[in-house]
Amino acid sequence: MPRVTVETVDHVARLAHLSLTGEERTLFARQLDEILAWAESLQAVDVSDVEPLAAAGKGALREDTEASGLPRERALDAAPDPAEGLFRVPRIIGG
């Protein structure tokens, strides 16, 4: 089993867009290591020829018919920084 280190947590936090504090990094490394060590029992289960089960239900598709969605201004009502009918975010390119 791979040991979870602070470096592992840093890598995963980057993937998850989480800026963790130093304290959180060490705490999570220790706790995740414990949790994964305990979940290690799954590795011993014989799963050969078992198809993974992603969800317990199949759901149902509806007809693809035209319907109105949420009006733009209502959707923007909840945004922390709407501008000119759009969601404004910090600069991504250049600057």
Partner: peptide
């Protein structure tokens, strides 16, 4: 970006995401 809280301060997108979520 679309709803809820946004961390003030960060001037680049990645830091805004990370700080908001932290």
């Amino acid at each position: 970006v679309r709803y809820g809280r946004r961390a003030g301060g960060p001037s680049d997108l990645r830091s805004m995401y990370g700080r908001t979520r932290d």
